[in-house]
Amino acid sequence: MTTPFPFSAIVGQDEMKRAMILTAIDPSIGGVLVFGDRGTGKSTAVRALAGLLPPIRVVKGCPVNSAKRTDVPDWAQNIGRGTHDVPTPVVDLPLGATEDRVTGALDIEKALSAGEKAFQPGLLAKANRGYLYIDEVNLLEDHIVDLLLDVAQSGENVVEREGLSIRHPARFVLVGSGNPEEGELRPQLLDRFGLSVDVASPKDIATRVEVVKRRDAFENDTAAFLLRWQAEDATIRDRILTARDALKELKTPDKTLHDVAELCVALGSDGLRGELTLLKAARAYAAWRADPTLTRTHVRDVAGLALRHRLRRDPLDEAGTGARVTRIVEDVLG
């Protein structure tokens, strides 16, 4: 399974796919949280996304994927000349990762063997300008969560330990997945995710058969299968690039802004982050659909994604907040 499953070949799970495409169009939306049962294709979708993203241009040998020579941190060594295109980094943060692995630490190899004080970059450096993927995010240890919250907010990783004082940019799109039965997520971390999606296994037999059929075809003859879906993946990639450009030209009428604000007030979501994310997501969605102006339809279609996880919630509420959002969106936007 070296090659990821093609994104366009994923059956159903439209909301999850839409959320991921929106963050690819506008990374400042701020990440996707995917909650659902085991075996629903959460990991598959995230790994497929990596193959879909347009490449980025980075300085050769830069540990934090800087775009310009001037952005390369001063502690970096062995910087090459010129720039080259690399795939957008999608970095896995494993559950048991230590703080050192995540933030980077003193390079003990060099310290002990050469007596040099060098910094060994961690996962946050690798994920700069790309994606940071955390599977089973709800089981992540609290101290790693604290650290991520801090970095995700400031966009900068600061390491002050063992005689090192290092800072480097760490702007990444946070993608988390998990199974809610195994534990819940702290509201502070929840808030850092721009969009949230609940996925469930498809219940009708035809869809399930189709999933199994495609996966089977993929495993039997990976090359042929990739060839079959290559064109559709390329179409999505082109549409993402077109949408990125269109985003700049997109008109946002005051009427729609008013809708967004009204919706957030009606839902009683905390802070203004909900409004901003909803607006960004709606704009990205409009650009994706190649519409020139932001309208109420766009807002309605992404409201669930952007607001579901932001409501002040009752820990004992069983129905979840999804139903509440849908109802209020119906009420406000009609």
Partner: peptide
């Protein structure tokens, strides 16, 4: 629920 199961069976 998991779709890995039928894949393994196949």
């Amino acid at each position: 629920d998991s779709l890995r199961a039928p894949l393994f069976a196949l």
